[in-house]
Nucleic acid binder design. Structure first.
Length: 414
RNA sequence: CGGAGUGUGGCCUAGUGGUUUAGGGCGCCUGCUUUGGGAGCAGGAGAUCGUGAGUUCAAAUCUCACCACUCCGACCA
């Protein structure tokens, strides 16, 4: 992508009342634009990052044997009444009426919808287990939105739903999802703590939250200073030492990026989603549901990976892998164009700062703000040695690399 | 929903009743110059001072109402 064509206007100053660092940096870097409180547009850079996160999640879901579906956002009132959540769900539904005065809710989660879908076509134990997921918009009528993308009213969420024959099978899958979640967050460059949680209005018997440790977090957890133990503060009471290794527990702020629930029969009972087992007996389908908020995850990555100059994207979620920055000069121009084409041919995602009449300082400042992992500077100085400068966004040191060796070393790094 | 705060060109802001036909910086447009950390000079465009009502000879400035956004509480991915 040529930066001169990129729909992105970075700002030198963000708005001062925003508390969350991710909020300020994503706005300044023009990744997102706010339309209303808790309602955001994703601009090309932001959309690219979001798509990378989607890709990671989609891969991990597919690896679990789950199949992707699309479920409606506009959902009829009667479906919500089967579980009593038309009135009771918290945060409340966004409700609206059609021209015939029929009532609908904008889906904040899809247990009812998917259970209804599965009910009409799963009748036999032979059809189970079944795992379906969706990556789409959810609407939540929150009391208040906060911290940019950290808590919003419209957002893209991955929801996975599991349908099993019995508890043991369902719990085994639950554990598999838990491991998949750790992989997802790791690929996003995040260390998470998984803690036992309260099922809330989703309901069910067992649930775990995945927490990213970050000062901006609204939640807090107790983590062990030595081992990997972590727990919810309310659940743990006043104890000060780790039950696993007896070392000291520390309180940390955190952001909830994922939540998994073992639902058992809660929804299959209400919606009468049954199957016939081997012995010909009717049973309720055993369910689980597993959510990740993509925008919140994206903001959490920024909360963890940034410095005073801007964002430092982990390679797998970066909007581009390489930021190619030519300084002035005829030779520089032709050489960098060649590099740009070469990278594209090799499948390296590159943002080419071909903007004219922009001083080096401004290019560098933008590069630091946008946070692409590798920066390559081409200048008269470097070309005298048939080289370019390669700098990692996460490091201070700059390396001179011979142009003939460049593509190969980059492919290894990306 | 309760509490606190803010609202002045796209962004950051000065201005707290009267030479304010609202000032500056960034950004934008034109021309020249410049090119290793957000450049320089010259010229230019762009604002019903959140909205409405009121007080006053006079309102961006005071009063009231409404709206919007931010932050704290509760809830959540």
């Amino acid at each position: 992508m040529r930066q001169s064509k990129l729909f992105c206007k970075t700002k030198k100053e963000g708005f001062k009342t925003a508390e969350a660092i991710s909020h300020r940096l994503l706005i300044r870097g023009d990744f997102i634009d706010q339309l209303a409180s808790g309602v955001y547009s994703f601009l090309p850079l932001g959309k690219r990052v979001h798509r990378k996160i989607e890709r990671i999640i989609r891969e991990e879901m597919t690896a679990l044997g789950a199949q992707e579906v699309y479920l409606p956002i506009l959902t009829p009132k009667r479906l919500w009444e089967t579980t009593g959540r038309w009135e009771k769900i918290d945060p409340p539904l966004f409700k609206l009426k059609d021209r015939h005065r029929k009532e609908f809710g904008l889906g904040p989660t899809h247990e009812e919808v998917i259970t209804e879908l599965v009910r009409t076509r799963i009748k036999s134990y032979r059809d189970l287990p079944l795992y379906l997921f969706q990556i789409q918009a959810k609407f939540r009528n929150e009391m208040r939105s906060t911290g940019g993308l950290l808590r919003v009213r419209e957002f893209i969420m991955k929801d996975l739903y599991s349908f099993d024959r019995e508890k043991e099978e369902a719990i085994t899958f639950y554990k598999k999802v838990k491991r998949a979640y750790f992989r997802i967050f790791k690929r996003c460059g995040l260390k998470v703590v998984c803690v036992k949680a309260d099922p809330g209005t989703i309901g069910g018997e067992l649930s775990h939250e995945f927490m990213v440790l970050s000062d901006t977090g609204e939640d807090s957890v107790l983590i062990c200073s030595k081992c990997d133990f972590g727990t919810n503060i309310q659940k743990f009471g006043k104890k000060k030492t780790c039950p696993q290794c007896q070392n000291r527990l520390i309180k940390k702020n955190c952001i909830e990026v994922g939540h998994i629930f073992y639902l058992a029969e809660k929804y299959s009972r209400a919606i009468e989603a049954n199957f016939i087992d081997k012995k010909g007996k009717k049973n309720k389908i055993i369910m689980g549901c597993y959510g990740i908020g993509l925008g919140r995850l994206m903001a959490s990555i920024v909360e963890v990976h940034h410095d005073e100059k801007g964002i430092i994207w982990p390679i797998e979620v970066a909007p581009f892998q390489v930021h190619l920055i030519p300084l002035s000069g005829k030779k520089v121009e032709s050489q960098s164009k060649r590099l740009y084409q070469d990278f594209q041919a090799k499948g390296i995602e590159v943002l080419f700062d071909d903007r004219a009449d922009i001083t080096p300082g401004e290019k560098f400042a933008d590069a630091d703000l946008i946070g692409i992992p590798f920066r390559i500077v081409v200048s008269e100085k470097t070309l005298k040695k048939d080289s370019v400068e390669v700098k990692k966004r996460s490091e201070k040191k700059i390396k001179l690399v011979k142009i003939k060796d460049l593509s190969r070393s980059l492919i290894n790094l990306c």
